[in-house]
């Protein structure tokens, strides 16, 4: 976020801001909105800016960035499922590929809806060879996500080498899982995002996996508390037939995600007695409430300890 901080250096001066500075501030608030809260932030930004033109410029630039960072999912209008908004499926600013249904969703970033769908063209889709691996993996991932995430949406993209026609070349798939839960009436929102890059190395007959998981939660009833957690990991397996690859890749993903969740739980369990204690103890070192009624005594004792040098 270092860039964001820089954008603001000039802003602390009291002179009238330029339009560009106002738009930059508005964009900064929008792109930094917590999961599921950009529409609320936009409403507030609009009232603070008091300039429709600048507001529209800011939202049109900030929403696509936010939607892609948060990998939001949008329902396709023909009830054929959901499309993820991500650079992996981005054909242009407003068109996103849904590899599962071979459709292209046309989206309105600011309204966060998919307005239209069209069938994907052959050039937009991977070769039949790649599609066999992608499709097998997608089927396994759907099963896993259905069982592990009550509201999870997943998609498998070809990230590299979509035109590879057969054995002999490397290619790369990307598995994206996005689960969000928004309950503004309970002042609580959260999201889980995993991105798995799966590289099929033809020469070594190996599959290498790299993952980034990001978990965020925001609770804001009479306060503002946020969780940010992220984790990266690597693993590998052997190159096999598409169906076998799909199963072993999914097992690896399941294993790492389950472990990560357990380590998150562990971090929470450590809070009360270890981590939080380094900020402030529940009880004083003396294990009794502070003797406020006897403060004169405390001051005296401290002076004595200081004088005879028994203190630290």
């Amino acid at each position: 976020m270092a860039e964001d901080e820089e954008e603001y250096q000039e802003v602390s001066e009291p002179e009238e801001l330029s339009d560009k500075q106002k738009i930059d501030i508005a964009k900064w608030f929008l792109t930094n909105s917590p999961s599921g809260e950009i529409q609320y932030v936009a409403k507030d930004v609009r009232s603070v800016l008091m300039d429709e033109h600048l507001y529209n410029m800011a939202v049109s630039e900030a929403f696509p960035v936010y939607n892609k960072t948060h990998i939001i999912s949008l329902e396709l209008p023909n009830r054929s499922g959901d499309v993820l908004i991500t650079t992996y499926g981005e054909l242009n600013e407003t068109e996103y590929l849904d590899p599962r249904t071979a459709q292209v969703a046309i989206v309105d970033h600011v309204k966060q809806v998919c307005t239209e769908v069209r069938p994907a063209t052959d050039e937009e889709l991977p070769s039949p060879y790649i599609e066999e691996f992608r499709c097998a993996l997608d089927a396994e991932i759907i099963k896993y996500v259905d069982e592990a995430y009550p509201k999870g949406i997943c998609s498998v993209y070809c990230a590299n080498g979509k035109d590879v026609e057969g054995p002999g070349s490397d290619f790369e798939l990307a598995v994206l899982i996005s689960a969000a839960r928004h309950s503004p009436q309970n002042f609580c929102n959260g999201s889980w995002r995993s991105i798995w890059n799966v590289e099929f190395k033809d020469d070594m007959q190996m599959i290498e996996l790299r993952c980034t998981m990001q978990v965020g939660a925001h609770y804001f009833e009479e306060g503002n508390v946020q969780l940010d957690a992220n984790h990266e990991c690597n693993d590998s397996t052997i190159f096999q037939f598409p169906d076998d690859c799909a199963i072993s890749i999914t097992n690896i993903i399941r294993h790492h995600e389950t472990e990560y969740l357990a380590s998150l739980e562990g971090s929470y369990l450590n809070l009360p007695d270890t981590t939080f204690k380094d900020l402030r103890r529940k009880l004083p070192v003396t294990r009794t409430l502070f003797p406020w009624h006897n403060t004169l005594q405390i001051s005296l004792n401290r002076d004595i300890t200081k004088e005879i040098g028994t203190g630290k």
């Binding site: 609580c188 609770y219 809070l271």
Partner: peptide, 18 residues
């Protein structure tokens, strides 16, 4: 500790139950 951190933990468990 109990309420605010607890709520974020609950949220994580809602997203992906243990």
């Amino acid at each position: 500790d109990q309420v605010y951190f607890g709520k974020t933990r609950e949220m994580v468990c809602t997203l992906r139950p243990p």
